[in-house]
């Protein structure tokens, strides 16, 4: 039986990333779904970048951005006394960037499907914008939220390149399941690699089955 530490670490990373992205992605997706701003295409393109860039490119720049000599990494080091690179916190930041489109796109599609009609109706019934959002838009987009959260979670579980670049392979800190599989293969421990890999395949299939059963049309598109 392989060490299950990487599994728990992956689950923790995916959970934290999904929660953070719910807070970041929801307002971003809402803004994108309703704005007439000329900036919209540019913001949409930036949001979708992680879908098309090689993880090494992303990982490389995140690594630089989080390094102790960069403003972000330096600030973090000063405040917490720890480096962001090769740490769990650094992995969370990298995952938030990497998984952003998996949260934003399904939400944006869901919000667009709801449209402005119900929001206008709510406004004429004295609901302020926040009230209308939480009591009308969110319930009407519930499936979009489930799809977005599940895809974000699953995608974070499966990431490899960015994690390797930013986090390395520190047991209990950055050695997530995909890294563990990689190392098992490198060290020719095929049976342990099998166990983790088959587990991930089953997990991924279950997740996609769930997403497709919920509804078509709220998924990812590049």
């Amino acid at each position: 039986m392989p060490d299950l530490g990487p599994l728990w670490l992956s689950l923790a990373l995916a959970s934290v990333t999904t929660v953070i992205l719910l807070f970041i992605g929801t307002p971003l997706a809402w803004w994108l779904s309703g704005t007439q701003s000329r900036l919209r295409p540019a913001i949409e393109a930036v949001t979708a970048l992680p879908l098309v860039l090689p993880p090494t490119v992303l990982g490389f720049y995140i690594l630089i951005a989080l390094g102790p000599t960069s403003p972000i990494g330096g600030f973090w080091l000063k405040v917490t006394g720890e480096a962001l690179t090769f740490s769990f916190s650094g992995l969370v930041i990298a995952s938030v960037v990497y998984s952003l489109p998996f949260m934003v796109q399904p939400l944006q599609n869901a919000f667009s499907a709801v449209g402005r009609g119900p929001v206008e109706a709510a406004a004429t019934l004295r609901a302020n914008p926040l009230d209308a959002f939480f009591y009308v838009v969110v319930p009407l987009s519930a499936r979009g939220f489930v799809t977005a959260a599940v895809l974000t979670f699953a995608h974070t579980i499966g990431e490899f390149g960015v994690v390797l670049m930013v986090g390395g392979n520190i047991p209990g800190e950055t050695r997530v399941i995909s890294i563990a599989i990689y190392e098992h293969v490198e060290t020719l421990k095929y049976s342990e690699a099998h166990i983790l890999s088959v587990g991930l395949i089953a997990f991924a299939f279950a997740v996609l089955l769930l997403v497709y059963s919920i509804r078509r049309g709220n998924g990812i598109n590049v």
């Binding site: 206008e120 004429t124 009308v136 009407l140």
Partner: peptide
């Protein structure tokens, strides 16, 4: 004045009822 502070009642051509609420829920919302 934003719409939710104007005491207007708007009935839309396509009713725009809230589909996640019952008839009673729609009335109670308002």
């Amino acid at each position: 004045v934003p719409p939710h502070h104007r005491p207007v009642g708007y009935v839309f051509q396509r009713a725009r009822l809230f589909p996640h609420l019952s008839v009673e829920g729609n009335l109670e919302f308002a």
